[in-house]
Every structure is written in structure tokens, then in C-alpha cells.
Design a protein around this nucleic acid. Structure first.
Length: 317
DNA sequence: CCAAAAGAGACAGCAACCAT
DNA sequence: ATGGTTGCTGTCTCTTTTGG
């Protein structure tokens, strides 16, 4: 059998046809751990925040450094991850069967309390991110990582039984007859199966718009603007939610190149909330500590697991 | 008052999609 | 095919705020 290397994984990330099912995501992550175990890249603990670590790849990959990984969420070992992914898949199956948040009453409370859903999603996506960080062409990697995260979330939402697809809609511009804006939406989802296929250029009242990005950064503005524009130009309230993986990046901190920076602009977030509109849900797989501490932020920002178990069902009820 | 941290903005190159 | 538009994200740099 051929030995699997990091460049094989790079190949997979570049392959646009390689991620049609959740199992494809399991497979690449699982393989990533095998490669890590074999090639043993240097593991570095961030001096500025000790729960974040980096891997540094071998000389043959240019000593490239991965993105920061939150060790509270990242599994790091093959067996732990394998078991956790199986529990994750089984839980999605339960959600699909019951079609509401009631599963939490059926002996699943321990699993829910463990917050393992966030860990599985985080580990899968960050392992893909780490593979991307070994690319020669970093911009190609960024593009693919963003696409793969969007696709991953789409598959999860589909897996619990909803319709969910990216969509480009045309919004008519009032006062300018014949003119319309073309507007790309990351995800549109609904429990109302039949309706979606028929109205692909518009948003049906039962549908929710989801914006999916790995970090909010300066693009948080766009999410608020989406809600504002869609609601204003379509003449009715359009529910818009946002799903982010995290909001940290590596940064030089004094002498060290292994520092951590937050990329979440909390004051802009609150400013947009007041001046434009409140979003219908903001979810992080790896929330920043301030989001859980600050009362204003805590009202609006929750973790991804809560979206999947509770809010998704309330929103689309 | 100064150093460090946080905030904000700019940028890179690629990809997807669409109209022509 | 071609060109225009929109979108992707990690890092660098510059500015502002913080805290001792």
C-alpha cells in the first residue's frame, strides 16, 4: 500500500469533487492525523495564550507553520477523534429522526453537556486548514478552506433533514424598474422541502439565510448589510444568521511569532446591531472568551452546537 | 510618558459565476 | 473563449487605546 503523505492531502483539498458527503470530511481528517503521527511536525505552544498550539512542518514543506489550534477543541489523536465522529454522526441521525430539539430529553444530556459537537466540527475544519497552511500558494489554500467550510456546514444541515443550498438571487431595485442586484448567499435553508426548488431566484417566507465564514474579521459588516438590504429591498423581514468557525489568527507578539490575535471587532458588532439591525443568530464553533463574558455580546452570540440542537429548529419552525 | 495590545484597513491571488 | 463582478481568508502595517 502506498504511503500517504501531506502532498496527497493537499491534492484532496484541491479536488473540487472530493467533498460530497460528511464521510469525506471524516476521512481527510482521519488521514491527517495519521500523517501527523508519522511525520511528527514540531508542536509549539503559543506563549501569549497557552491553550493555542501550532504545528511546524518539516523542511521539505518549507518549515511552514499552521494556524493556531485551540487545544480545548482540537482532538489531536486518531482514536479520540474517530470515536467522537461516530457519536457525532449518530447524534445527527437522532436529530433527523425527531426533527426538533426534543432529543435533549432522551438521555442525550451527557453528550450535549460535553459540547463534543463543537469539538468535532472544529477538529475537522482545522485539520483541513492545517493542510491548507502547507500549500505553496497560500491564496489558493484560503479560497479552498473557505469553500470547504461552507460546504461542511451545508452537509451538516442537510444531514439533519433540511433543505440547504447556496443561492444567487436577483433583487429588484425600487425606483429603478428593470434594474436588479445579483446577490450571492452562502446558504439558504428551510424545513419546507417542496418550496425551495421552485423559487430559486427569490427567498421563500419559510427560508432562512445563513452566512458561513471561518472568521468574521472585517466581513462582519457584510452580514449586517445583507440582513438590512434583503429586508429593505424585499419589503419583509428576512431572517439572517451567521456561522463562524473562530476569530483568532497568529500574530507577532513582542519577540515571538507565535502570538495570538483576536479578529473580532466587538464595538463594530454592537454598533451595527443598533444602527442597522439585530441578526437572527450568530454562532461560533470556537467563541472568543469575551463573547461569553460580555453581557451585550452574550445575548446574541452562541456556540454552533446550540444552533444545531436548538435554534435551527426554532428558526425554521 | 512609553510600551504593549487592540483595532482597523489594505492586500494578495485564486475561484465561481454570469453575460456577452 | 473572454472579461467583469463578487467572493474567499491569513498576514502585514498603521493607528488608537490601554495600563502601569
Amino acid at each position: 500500500m502506498k504511503k500517504i503523505t501531506l502532498s496527497d492531502l493537499q491534492e484532496s483539498v484541491r479536488d473540487n469533487s472530493a467533498f460530497g458527503t460528511l464521510n469525506d470530511y471524516f476521512a481527510i481528517c482521519n488521514t491527517f492525523f495519521q500523517v501527523i503521527q508519522k511525520e511528527k511536525p514540531t508542536r509549539i505552544v503559543s506563549p501569549s495564550q497557552s491553550n493555542y498550539i501550532f504545528y511546524q512542518y518539516a523542511p521539505s514543506y518549507g518549515h511552514k507553520i499552521t494556524r493556531p489550534l485551540n487545544s480545548h477543541l482540537f482532538f489531536e489523536t486518531v482514536t479520540n477523534f474517530k470515536d467522537a465522529f461516530e457519536r457525532f454522526a449518530a447524534f445527527l441521525n437522532d436529530l433527523k429522526k425527531h426533527q426538533d430539539s426534543a432529543v435533549r430529553r432522551k438521555g442525550k444530556q451527557n453528550y450535549i453537556d460535553s459540547k463534543e459537537i463543537n469539538k468535532v466540527v472544529y477538529t475537522v475544519q482545522q485539520s483541513i486548514g492545517c493542510i491548507g497552511d502547507s500549500f505553496e500558494n497560500s491564496n489558493q489554500s484560503r479560497k479552498r478552506i473557505g469553500q470547504l467550510f461552507e460546504n461542511f456546514i451545508k452537509l451538516i444541515i442537510q444531514e439533519v433533514g433540511l433543505d440547504c443550498e447556496p443561492r444567487t438571487i436577483n433583487i429588484p431595485i425600487p425606483d429603478y424598474p428593470g434594474y436588479e442586484m445579483s446577490y450571492e448567499l452562502d446558504l439558504v435553508f428551510s424545513r419546507n422541502k417542496a418550496i425551495i426548488a421552485s423559487e430559486t431566484k427569490f427567498i421563500h417566507p419559510s427560508e432562512i439565510v445563513g452566512s458561513v465564514k471561518t472568521t468574521s474579521k472585517d466581513r462582519i459588516d457584510k452580514v449586517f448589510l445583507d440582513k438590512y438590504l434583503l429586508t429593505k429591498l424585499l419589503g419583509r423581514n428576512i431572517p439572517v444568521i451567521a456561522i463562524f468557525l473562530h476569530d483568532v489568527q497568529r500574530a507577532k507578539r513582542g519577540e515571538s511569532i507565535f502570538g495570538i490575535n483576536s479578529t473580532f471587532k466587538s464595538n463594530h458588532f454592537l454598533g451595527y446591531t443598533v444602527a442597522l439591525n439585530k441578526l437572527d443568530g450568530v454562532y461560533y464553533v470556537d467563541p472568543r472568551p469575551e463573547m461569553l463574558v460580555n453581557d451585550r455580546l452574550r445575548e446574541q452570540i452562541h456556540d454552533f452546537q446550540q444552533f444545531l440542537i436548538q435554534d435551527l429548529w426554532k428558526l425554521s419552525a
